[in-house]
């Protein structure tokens, strides 16, 4: 799939934003007064900037509102609802932390659960696409949740939980890479099954269906070099998970800032790969997949 920058920025920033909000809402980063204002502001900012970025690739951004109507069939719509409900539910908790209203933490726990639900809904947009075998696997929600929780824990400066989650994220990334590589072959789809010609013999592409490019070729057939992909996978694991686990242990806010920045670099590399390596079966008709 074409790795569109708007979608990469959206999924990474809103992921870490909702992960961070979950930690703050659950009271795992005790804050009050203006400190609370800035911490909650950061969480809301990341989540909202991310959601805003998701509209950049729409030709007509006001259509984004129509997404809310399709919740019965679309995970994108459910994600939109989940994010709005989450941000509304968390608002009283944020105000309570800032102004010292003393509202029960239960609201925060509910909001934290909704945060994770939102991230899960984002991941299901990709995980439910049967035509992209690499995504159509339990590892996709796992990876999105691991990124959200790890990013959130790093940003919250959790000195024990963050390194542990980092290790979990490394495991999730490696599992995703290893299992993902086998999915297209395991699905057993090839040019023969795509055209139905496998019943009468071996099918091969005489020439492409058209000599010019089209939407399918631009958006769904993206081929990454094996070496290039390997380099980015290493960057994703090292920067996304390994280095932040050590950096977050450095004393003071500087350690957290470093850990989060390095983690984000790894997260962007991982998310770019997530899209660029995903093989849509439509490529079979173009002879682009085995």
């Amino acid at each position: 799939m074409h790795p569109a920058p708007s979608v990469i920025v959206f999924t990474v920033l809103s992921g870490i934003g909702f992960g961070f909000l979950a930690f703050v809402a659950a009271g795992l980063l005790p804050v009050s007064g203006w400190g609370a204002f800035f911490v909650w502001g950061l969480g809301y900012g990341l989540a909202v900037v991310g959601l805003g970025a998701s509209t950049f690739h729409l030709g007509n951004p006001q259509r984004a509102l129509l997404a809310f109507t399709q919740w019965r069939s679309s995970w994108l719509s459910r994600e939109a609802w989940a994010s709005v409900v989450t941000l509304l539910v968390l608002a009283p908790m944020a105000l309570s932390d800032w102004l010292g209203l003393g509202l029960p933490r239960g609201i925060g726990w509910l909001g934290a659960g909704l945060c994770l639900l939102t991230v899960a809904a984002t991941s299901m947009i990709y995980a439910q696409i049967r035509a992209v075998p690499r995504w159509n696997l339990w590892t996709t929600p796992l990876l999105f949740l691991a990124f959200a929780l790890t990013g959130g824990a790093l940003l919250a400066g959790r000195e024990v939980l963050a390194p542990l989650l980092c290790l979990g994220l490394a495991a999730a990334l490696i599992t995703t890479f290893l299992l993902g590589d086998q999915q297209f072959v395991r699905r057993g789809a090839n040019l023969g099954t795509a055209t139905g010609l496998d019943r009468i013999g071996a099918a091969s592409v005489f020439e492409l269906p058209h000599t010019g490019g089209n939407y399918l070729m631009h958006e769904m057939i993206h081929v990454v070099g094996r070496k290039h992909a390997m380099k980015l996978r290493v960057i994703a694991v090292i920067c996304g998970a390994v280095l932040p686990a050590a950096l977050v242990l450095l004393p003071g806010h500087l350690g957290i800032a470093f850990a989060v920045l390095v983690h984000l670099a790894g997260a962007f590399a991982a998310r770019w790969l997530f899209f660029a390596e995903a093989e849509h079966v439509v490529g079979l008709y173009y002879g682009a997949r085995g």
Partner: peptide, 9 residues
């Protein structure tokens, strides 16, 4: 048509 067959072999 230009998109389908913009060059020939």
């Amino acid at each position: 048509l230009r998109q389908i067959r913009g060059k020939n072999f």
